[in-house]
């Protein structure tokens, strides 16, 4: 099971003076169970790309397969497939709190599953589970107006609204934009939990647009780098972050951690590769220092 893009190109407003090609011939596969990060400078086409994953945008050229089903056919069947894909590919847009509209948090979260035809006990169960996954207590928040909540809480409600549809793939477009550091940290923890599967919920495939290279290094299995609508790099973050020149051309920098370990290595300290967070980096540096000491070099 996977989402597959084959030679996808997309042009905004074709045939007008404002015509603009946002994606050029993109082919990629997102396997189920992975955590895929998408990085790129502002305007590189990240948001355009992810809107192809559940059929919100139809490619100008090429095809998108979700679990082997083409969601781009223009006939009835194709439209049906696109609609089904929206059930299995959940989409959390940038600033998702702006889509809230119901009077209570519970009603807003129930909107998605209700559109799927659920009601009664099952629906309520879904809402409870989704709010819990997003880190909100049903008893405390369920009956509040979403508009009275704080920014971070609103965002969690919006994410719960997508989780309540129980998608197998979850797409998040810069989910931490505009949050304070603590809110950002908490949200990333939630995302990591969703990926593992928790609270009786199966693990989710995460597709994650981010500007934070540190988050990407820490969490992602796969990294896709876009530059002006072209796919310029893809692979595991450790491998991709070694391509400093291509990254710089794409307007990105390797994460602080990678830069630090690389410069340590440049001074001759044999730091092993593969550290993905601060703790692992510390352990790696300690190990390198110890082996250095044993060899009597310092």
């Amino acid at each position: 099971m996977s989402i597959e893009l084959k030679n996808v190109s997309y042009t905004y407003m074709p045939g007008t003076p404002m015509e603009r090609q946002a994606l050029h011939d993109i082919s990629l596969t997102i396997r189920e169970g992975t955590f895929t990060a998408i990085a790129g400078h502002t305007g590189s086409g990240k948001s355009t790309l992810i809107q192809h994953l559940n059929g919100l945008l139809q490619p100008t050229d090429g095809t998108v397969l979700v679990d082997g089903v083409n969601i781009n056919a223009r006939d009835r069947q194709g439209r049906g497939a696109a609609k089904l894909a929206r059930g299995s590919v959940g989409m959390v847009f940038q600033y998702p709190e702006q889509q809230l509209f119901e009077e209570t948090v519970a009603a807003d979260v129930a909107f998605g599953p209700r559109n799927q035809g659920l009601s009664g006990e099952v629906l309520e169960q879904r809402v409870r589970a989704a709010l819990a996954l997003a880190g909100l207590d049903y008893e405390a928040f369920g009956n509040q107006s979403p508009f009275q909540l704080s920014g971070g809480q609103k965002r969690r409600v919006a994410i719960a609204g997508v989780l309540a549809m129980q998608p197998r793939y979850l797409v998040l477009d810069e989910p931490t934009a505009g949050l304070d550091p603590r809110g950002r940290e908490a949200l990333m923890e939630t995302v990591a939990r969703l990926r593992q599967g928790s609270g009786g919920c199966p693990p989710m495939t995460i597709i994650f647009v981010s500007h934070s290279m540190d988050d990407i290094l820490r969490l992602a299995d796969e990294l896709i780098v876009l530059d002006r609508g072209r796919l310029v790099l893809s692979g595991s973050p450790e491998v991709v972050f070694r391509e400093k020149d291509i990254l710089r051309k794409a307007g990105l920098e390797a994460p602080e951690l990678t830069v630090l370990l690389d410069s340590l290595r440049a001074t001759g300290l044999p730091v092993p590769a593969g550290a993905r967070n601060r703790r692992e980096a510390a352990a790696a540096i300690r190990q390198a220092l110890l082996s250095h000491k044993e060899a009597g070099l310092c």
């Binding site: 559940n54 919100l56 929206r86 702006q98 889509q99 997508v162």
Partner: peptide
């Protein structure tokens, strides 16, 4: 456009 897409993603047709 953005809000429509967000609600479409939540199953509105």
């Amino acid at each position: 456009d953005r809000i429509m897409k967000a609600q479409q993603s939540r199953g509105v047709d």
